[in-house]
Amino acid sequence: MSGRRKGAEVALKDVRFNYGEMRMHFDLTVPPARIAAIIGPSGSGKSTLLNLIAGFETPQSGEILINGVDVTRIAPEERPVSMVFQDNNLFAHLDVETNVALGRSPKLKLTDADRAAVNSAIARVGLTGKEKRKPEALSGGERQRVAIARALVRNRPVLLLDEAFASLGPALRNQMLDLVKALHQEMSMTILMVTHHPEDALHLDAMLFFLENGAVTARGPARKLLSDTGPAALKRYMGTVT
């Protein structure tokens, strides 16, 4: 975790992407070192948005800029982005240490400095002593911690969380959010997180993007959007008005 990198600005300019019947159109900017929460009904395009940024999908038109550099056409590995999924973040047959080390070298050719970085990342997420465990011997929360540790050793300025904590209970989820918050303060990366829980956005004091039918229909500070004066669509989604 050497060299504190400042987070990068993530911008989608007039990005169009068709997924079957669904036509999506994204135009949004997340300023450097901010946390953005993305919420919206299922099928509204939340995960697709992250997949576009990570490079797992290529838009039909428009451009994706990270730190002002057009990354629309470059391979996922070359983008300054790490992503944590809901499941399957870890290779089931590899232990914690190896799973994290893959973030440093996909061929597992590690220098001493790499090993030190791996160990300190594992320590940072609170898993010291569990380096040799296989994922099956970890709880759901611990597995996500390993995935975050790997993102730490990758040291990319943008972190994408795709419902990364959705399968955890409320207490664990809050712990993970606290971890994310602390890491964000230390490393100041730009974080985009898809979540089903608007209170996550409040917890992180994030800026909020509300998606409907493949487009952002509301944006702003979570505290403001989720208050009584927020937009009607968001209230319908929250179930506060019928």
């Binding site: 990570a54 490079g55 797992f56 391979a75 996922p76 590995e77 070359e78 983008r79 982005v81 790490s82 992503m83 999924f85 973040n89 290779f91 893959l102 973030g103 996909p106 061929k107 990758r154």
Partner: peptide
């Protein structure tokens, strides 16, 4: 996805 992001050969 992971293998692509990590740049595995």
């Amino acid at each position: 996805k992971l293998s692509a992001q990590l740049g595995m050969g």
